[in-house]
Amino acid sequence: MARLLPVIVILAAWLYAMVDCAMADRAAVRGLSKTSWFLITILPIIGTLLWFIFGRPRRTAPPTSGSTRGRRPVAPDDDPDFLRGL
């Protein structure tokens, strides 16, 4: 079983990299085109590492609109506007 663990980890990372590449936004992919990155990720170890280091889109904060800036979601029973409508 100990011999299979590295193989399972490599296969899981490879599959995750391929799905992540396929689901990534085309405009957010860094470096090469999305198609090129997908073809690179076909190489199990090298392609996976290259995708995670150089091609994967960077995570950014979600955009905020001006009206909800500084507000956080509130439960309905804590929201004064909701309670007024009851």
Score class of each variant (00 low, 15 high):
residue 82 F to A: 13
residue 69 R to A: 00
residue 42 I to V: 14
residue 78 D to C: 10
residue 36 S to W: 02
residue 43 L to A: 14
residue 61 A to N: 09
residue 61 A to T: 08
residue 17 A to G: 15
residue 30 R to A: 04
residue 65 S to A: 06
residue 68 T to G: 01
residue 66 G to V: 04
residue 45 I to D: 05
residue 77 D to S: 11
residue 22 A to P: 10
residue 82 F to M: 12
residue 57 P to W: 00
residue 34 K to E: 06
residue 67 S to L: 08
residue 35 T to E: 10
residue 29 V to C: 00
residue 49 L to A: 03
residue 75 A to V: 08
residue 82 F to D: 13
residue 46 I to F: 03
residue 53 I to N: 09
residue 65 S to H: 08
residue 16 Y to L: 15
residue 66 G to L: 06
residue 47 G to P: 07
residue 52 F to T: 05
residue 58 R to C: 00
residue 61 A to H: 08
residue 39 L to R: 15
residue 28 A to S: 06
residue 33 S to P: 10
residue 48 T to E: 02
residue 52 F to M: 07
residue 76 P to W: 01
residue 22 A to H: 13
residue 76 P to G: 08
residue 53 I to C: 04
residue 45 I to A: 09
residue 69 R to D: 00
residue 20 D to A: 12
residue 56 R to H: 07
residue 24 A to E: 02
residue 29 V to I: 05
residue 44 P to N: 13
residue 23 M to V: 14
residue 47 G to A: 06
residue 30 R to E: 08
residue 40 I to G: 13
residue 53 I to D: 09
residue 72 R to L: 04
residue 71 R to L: 05
residue 29 V to K: 04
residue 27 A to C: 05
residue 70 G to E: 10
residue 76 P to N: 11
residue 39 L to D: 14
residue 22 A to C: 10
residue 66 G to I: 01
residue 42 I to Y: 02
residue 74 V to Y: 04
residue 50 L to Y: 01
residue 52 F to P: 07
residue 64 T to S: 07
residue 55 G to N: 07
residue 23 M to P: 11
residue 21 C to A: 12
residue 41 T to F: 00
residue 26 R to C: 04
residue 46 I to P: 09
residue 70 G to C: 04
residue 40 I to N: 15
residue 28 A to H: 01
residue 27 A to P: 05
residue 32 L to M: 12
residue 26 R to G: 06
residue 79 D to L: 10
residue 78 D to S: 13
residue 62 P to Y: 04
residue 31 G to M: 10
residue 61 A to Q: 10
residue 51 W to M: 06
residue 49 L to Y: 03
residue 76 P to Q: 11
residue 18 M to G: 13
residue 31 G to F: 02
residue 34 K to M: 05
residue 72 R to Y: 04
residue 64 T to R: 13
residue 44 P to E: 06
residue 61 A to R: 12
residue 36 S to V: 10
residue 35 T to C: 05
residue 81 D to Q: 12
residue 60 T to H: 08
residue 26 R to N: 10
residue 35 T to S: 09
residue 74 V to E: 15
residue 22 A to W: 02
residue 27 A to G: 07
residue 41 T to N: 15
residue 19 V to A: 14
residue 66 G to F: 01
residue 32 L to A: 12
residue 25 D to N: 14
residue 66 G to W: 01
residue 54 F to Q: 11
residue 63 P to T: 03
residue 49 L to G: 02
residue 33 S to R: 13
residue 23 M to C: 12
residue 63 P to E: 05
residue 60 T to R: 12
residue 57 P to Q: 08
residue 70 G to A: 05
residue 74 V to L: 12
residue 16 Y to S: 15
residue 36 S to D: 10
residue 28 A to T: 07
residue 59 R to H: 09
residue 71 R to E: 09
residue 78 D to H: 13
residue 23 M to W: 05
residue 40 I to M: 15
residue 39 L to W: 11
residue 63 P to N: 04
residue 26 R to E: 12
residue 77 D to L: 09
residue 67 S to C: 06
residue 73 P to T: 12
residue 58 R to Q: 08
residue 27 A to Q: 10
residue 28 A to Q: 03
residue 76 P to D: 11
